[in-house]
Write a protein that binds this DNA or RNA. Structure first.
Length: 632
RNA sequence: GCUGCUGUAGCUCAGUCGGUAGAGCGCGUCCUUGGUAAGGACGAGGUCAUGGGUUCAAAUCCCAUCAGCAGCUCCA
């Protein structure tokens, strides 16, 4: 019989050949390198028989999908090791490959310690050394169900009950049999490098009302070198952690007395204020009007806005003069009141009202994470009131604004997501369709790549989210553009149209940076703490070589300061080397060394952070360079 | 909130078998005036997260609380 190869050629193989036989027929080296096959587009085991005329591709280590398959198989090896070590009273949940590794969820009474992980690793090593084969088998669904029931594998039973296919496939390895679609590498010896990284709790099916399982994370590679490199990168990334850098650089701190509420130090405030200055500059240019609304507002407002109904669990409440008040978790209701304080004409539209509003949200204690997840933050909020046919255009201009601003901060790894109608939502089908369409059109118009998250929209409307990754590749939402189908109704917003009729405006609720706090955290990680000149809390340090030139140093310092730069004078009785090191550690962009030579010539010796000595220059020229850096 | 781990000087961390506490950095004073990533000496600084318990004796063992970390869930 003949099979087709990816390059279009045909190959003669004997009847009943499996993928491995095909690889063998192409070449013995390929057969040794083969991990799995792809037959007519579908990934299969090497042992899979191929039908005459099918297209067969051999997947080896170099193939893009190889690593995922390896890690999935490694998860099975780990599960087999756990079964051998902890016996029959372990229930197995799921064990997929994930970005950067794999995990397996177990249910057992004993809770895993780091020592257990070592033991499991050792057992895995034994399995790898033994080269235990993966055995695939097919079984009637009912038969498999009966078997998992008798084995007490409740999670597998639950999975089987929801599976449509019949028969189902099972994989056995080293005494551990798992319900699994496959495919798998041929045997455990093909997991050359692996490491178990951590253990953490996880709910069965991610549902907090269900039982908590123990999730063991690990990763696997095709070589020890790749594994070592991966671990090195993780270590490297940890050094960029904004929580560590924020303390080291004196930007902010956290205290037990206010969990989740960041304290900004003078240097942190400088960075925040620079961000705000820039924000105001572009928003004024775009025609936004700035507002400010109270932090505490009477409780009935929150009933009216729908927050009581949908967001109460995340809100802080208090009583004032026997009246119930709530601390605002969002800025919208306040801005709705501002809108209603005057009459509006279609001529005013689009009306863009921005508020840098401080909001408080009671987040679950376990989700707090440095500046990236806090309980109080400044949202760079804005509400855009417009006509229905302006919606798409306004969304598009916010998309432009987001990319422009992220670009200014050097952030280019931005993921865009469109979230559609959730189960629990308000508004009519037409409203949702129109709004979703408007968002899609805006994205298409601006040629933005995006993923769709079905059912992840806000209860009041569909939204576009902008995500940026932190140093450990965790993704955080920053900007969001939400069509708001709820507020105009709830607050009975109106405008007068050209025909004199009172009509309901369309509202967009949007942020660009999202939360100033989160944005700062991501900036710190993005730059590894070495913020660009225009954002750096200290832009330059004057380093006098000896006390003898202190007067000149003071003069240089004063001139820079008077020119509006953030500069410090290091007049400590320390060596030049020490002062330089200090400035390098604090990631100050420029160091200006002044000694006898410079004092005599009216120059400074410039040193650039992490770049070293950049040579002498007249002070006037340095002032010009600094101005250019700020404008960049 | 849930599961697991952790909490010792401003920061990073030692502290063995239960016997009342240590280093480096930083900070202060003095000496030193040094040319591009750590000059030297001396000194101050701790309710060992908090509250209970066991014990002749607790940083150390047990319980609870608080906070942090990883993850789940949730979200800007």
């Amino acid at each position: 019989m003949k099979v087709r190869l990816p390059d279009g050629s045909e190959l003669e193989v004997s009847e009943g050949s499996c993928v491995r036989d095909v690889a063998e027929a192409i070449g013995p080296r390929l057969a040794r390198a083969a991990l799995v096959g792809r037959v007519d587009g579908e990934l299969v085991d090497l042992s899979q028989e191929v039908a005459p005329g099918s297209t067969v591709e051999i997947i080896t280590e170099g193939s893009p999908e190889a690593l995922e398959i390896l890690r999935h198989s490694a998860a099975h090896v780990m599960a087999a090791a756990v079964k051998r070590l902890y016996g029959e009273d372990v229930s197995f949940a799921i064990g997929p490959a994930i970005d950067g590794g794999f995990y397996y969820d177990f249910d057992l009474d004993h809770s895993f310690t780091p020592e257990d992980l070592e033991k499991i690793e050792e057992e895995m090593s034994r399995l790898v050394a033994a080269g235990v084969p993966f055995r695939r088998s097919e079984l009637d669904r009912d038969e498999a169900l009966g078997r998992m029931k008798s084995d007490g594998q409740q999670y597998k039973v639950e999975l089987l009950e929801e599976i449509d296919s019949d028969p189902v496939t099972l994989y056995e390895l080293g005494g551990f049999t798992d319900l699994c679609r496959g495919p798998h590498i041929p045997d455990s010896s093909r997991v050359p490098a692996f490491k178990l990284t951590s253990v953490a709790g996880s709910y069965w099916r991610g549902d907090s009302s269900k039982k908590m399982l123990q999730r063991v994370y690990g990763t696997a590679f095709f070589s020890q070198k790749d594994l070592a490199e991966h671990l090195r990168l993780i270590e490297e990334a940890r050094k960029r952690d904004h929580r560590r850098l924020g303390i080291e650089l004196g930007l902010f701190s956290f205290h037990e007395e206010g969990p989740g509420f960041p304290f900004f130090h003078p240097k942190g405030m400088i960075v925040l204020n620079e961000i705000l200055d820039y924000w105001r500059h572009v928003h004024r240019r775009e025609g936004y009007l700035e507002t400010r609304t109270p932090i505490l507002l009477r409780e009935d407002l929150w009933h009216r806005s729908g927050h009581w109904e949908h967001y109460r669990d995340n809100m802080y409440f208090t009583d004032i003069d026997d009246q119930g008040y709530a601390v605002k978790p969002m800025n919208c209701p306040g801005n709705m009141l501002i809108y209603k304080a005057s009459q509006h004409s279609y001529r005013d539209f689009p009306l863009k009202m921005g508020e840098l509003g401080l909001v408080h949200r009671h987040e679950l204690s376990g989700v707090l994470h440095g500046l990236l997840r806090v309980r109080s933050f400044v949202q760079d909020d804005a509400h855009i009131f417009c006509l229905p046919d302006q919606l798409s255009g306004e969304v598009a201009s916010v998309i432009d604004l987001c990319f422009e601003m992220y670009g200014r901060f050097g952030l280019d790894d931005v993921r865009v997501e469109l979230s559609t109608r959730p189960d629990r939502s308000i508004g009519s089908d037409t409203q949702w369709q129109d709004a979703t369409k408007a968002l899609e059109n805006a994205l298409a118009d601006r040629n933005v790549d995006y993923q769709v998250s079905p059912g992840e929209g806000a209860f009041y409307g569909p939204k576009i989210d902008f995500h940026i990754r932190d140093c450990l590749k965790r993704s955080w939402q920053c900007g969001t553009i939400q069509a708001d189908l709820s507020m105009p109704e709830r607050f009975d917003l109106e405008y007068t149209d050209s025909d004199g009729q009172r009509k309901r405006p369309v509202t967009i609720h949007r942020t660009v940076l999202g939360s100033l706090e989160r944005f700062l955290g991501l900036l710190i990680e993005h730059y590894g703490g070495a913020l660009p000149f225009w954002l750096a809390p200290v832009q330059a340090v004057v380093v006098p070589v000896t006390d003898e030139v202190m007067d000149y140093a003071r003069d240089v310092y004063a001139k820079l300061r008077d020119a509006g730069f953030r500069v410090e004078l290091d007049d400590r009785s320390e060596t030049v080397g020490n002062k330089i090191r200090q400035a390098e550690v604090l990631k100050v962009p420029r160091m200006l060394v002044v000694g006898r030579r410079e004092a005599g010539e009216g120059t400074v010796s410039v040193r650039e952070h992490s770049m070293g000595d950049a040579g002498p220059a007249p002070l006037s020229e340095v002032l010009g360079r600094f101005s250019a850096l700020v404008g960049e």
